[in-house]
Design a protein around this nucleic acid. Structure first.
Length: 451
RNA sequence: GCGACGGUAGCUCAGUUGGUUAGAGCACCUGGUUGUGGUCCAGGGGGUCGGGGGUUCGAAUCCCCUCCGUCGCCCCA
């Protein structure tokens, strides 16, 4: 067997995170985590692989072929790397439903896997945020999860001009289809067809339309005249709409009116619009469905979610309403780059508090190593040079490149018990007693953190 | 799973109709000898030109296969 290191590459569709890349990822994750916690959500996680059945039971069409599934060598149990979090969430909730508060608000951040051909915005492994409210069937809950998404996008630097939340109601859409002659058994497939109207050829649409007994009127209400109205303009849009369209909109009204009020009172209505083309591919959504897109439509959806009132019951829990959304890091990072919202990667790296330089002609064990150890025990982020040179200019340059806040120089002053402390931002430096170094550093660091 | 295009140093790339030991910038390392910041000077390591096979006196260059990547299709949490 030929052993050659350069034949080993990361598997297709996966990423290596070198320090700069990981620093950016941690930044995004920290915003996700902070905003989720601020909105009162508790962080959870589950296994990164589950029994294969967990994903096939709800049988959203097409899911299974894109799973990474496997068996232990010699075993007979089928597993799959998790492609999404919702089944795990429903399983975890169902297992302890009796003792959990209503509503239960959970979020999760972790890796997910799909065996797809990688392309722009879609890899085989990505990191995803999931935010869910379980046990609350009110429109306020749908609005609350949307608010988390809006606030974290806001924190990342987006505005209502650059981002759109497109919202629809799948339950109302289903009701409308049934009211207008679509057999109830065909509703899920008909919604699937509507989801793809902008991607399918006219011939294919016609063919599937006949197959599913969907009238031109129904398709027209959703398709060729996709309704896409900012919530703020909805009332005037409705007032001026032709009667058949009003009739279609009335199917959604019982849900959307309170939703609009909730989003308005949360102060995020200007990010949101009503869009009838959003029905989502997954069959488990039962009510509100939404997607978050960059306004230009250049990239794929940044996030998607909605209401899934049947899922907890499906996994053995009591009938429990739930809603939530998921946001992946791949598209989000592309959109952040498109809008120039990321700083140079090195600025996300953890910056050392202190860089210790020795200009003394002695072994490091004499003074350098003990001082560094002491500073680290005191909880400071401390670095030093591994170079042999005593050239202070070069060492200072290294301290600067590391992004250190302060430099400590061990030089001839140490013979009198003193060291030089230099503020690398202002350039000012002073000679202080070695014994007071930790105290002085703590004070100065606390000061610049506060300011 | 299907299609188009691509792959030369860690990164960005140059390499003339096939012609000796394959180049630049940045990055990295060393030195410019003993106290102050992305500057400057000198030197250095690093590539079986993605991998394999073929054509040829001779292949980074032409042909085939394969791997990987980019962009679409399918699908989409």
């Amino acid at each position: 067997m030929a052993v050659s290191t350069h034949t080993f590459q990361a598997p297709k569709g996966t990423r290596d995170f070198y320090p700069h890349d990981l620093a950016v990822r941690r930044y995004i994750e920290s915003v996700w985590r902070e905003v989720s916690i601020n909105h009162g959500f508790d962080e959870i996680d589950g296994p990164t692989f589950e029994h294969l059945d967990l994903y096939t039971i709800k049988s959203g069409p097409g899911i299974e072929s894109e799973l990474f599934s496997f068996r232990r060598s010699g075993g007979d149990t089928d597993y799959a790397l998790r492609p999404e979090f919702t089944p795990t969430l429903a399983r975890m909730y169902a297992a302890q439903a009796g003792s959990l508060a209503k509503p239960t608000k959970w979020f999760s951040i972790g890796p997910f896997f799909r065996a797809e051909r990688p392309q722009r915005g879609r890899l085989r492994e990505h990191v995803q945020l999931n935010v869910d409210i379980i046990g609350d069937d009110s429109p306020a809950a749908d609005a609350e999860v949307i608010a988390v998404a809006v606030r974290l996008l806001d924190k990342l630097g987006f505005t209502s001009n650059t981002i759109q939340i497109k919202i629809n109601d799948r339950g109302a859409a289903s009701a409308f289809l049934i009211d207008h002659g679509v057999p109830s058994g065909n509703v899920d497939l008909a919604l699937d067809l509507i989801d793809k109207l902008d991607r399918l050829s006219p011939e294919t649409i016609k063919e599937r339309q006949d197959e599913l007994e969907v009238s031109d009127f129904v398709l027209g209400a959703f398709g060729s005249n996709v309704i896409d109205v900012p919530f703020g303009d909805f009332d005037s849009f409705y007032a001026n709409a032709p009667t058949p369209l009003q009739e279609a909109l009335d199917s959604s009204a019982p849900f959307h009116k309170p939703m609009r009020q909730e989003l308005d009172s949360l102060g995020i209505a200007d990010w949101c619009r009503f869009n009838t083309s959003i029905v989502r591919g997954l069959a488990y959504y039962t009510g509100t469905v939404f997607e978050i897109h960059e306004a230009s439509g250049k990239e794929r959806a940044i996030a998607g979610g909605g209401r899934y009132d049947n899922l907890v019951e499906l996994f053995g829990g009591p009938p429990t309403p739930a809603c939530g959304f998921a946001m992946g890091d791949v598209v989000l990072r592309l959109v952040l780059e498109d809008h120039d919202l990321l700083k140079p990667a090195e600025q996300y790296m953890p910056a050392p508090d202190v860089f210790v330089i020795t200009a003394r002609d002695e072994e490091p064990q004499t003074n350098l190593t003990p001082l560094i150890s002491e500073l680290r025990q005191a909880g400071l982020h401390v670095r030093h040079s591994y170079k042999a040179t005593r050239n202070v200019g070069k060492l200072m340059s290294e301290a600067n490149k590391a992004g250190a806040r302060f430099a400590v120089i061990l030089g001839k002053e140490l013979d009198e018990g003193n060291v030089v402390l230099k503020d690398l931002r202002s350039g000012e430096q002073e000679e202080i007693a070695r014994e007071t170094l930790i105290e002085v550093l703590r004070t100065k660091l606390a000061a610049c953190e506060g300011g």
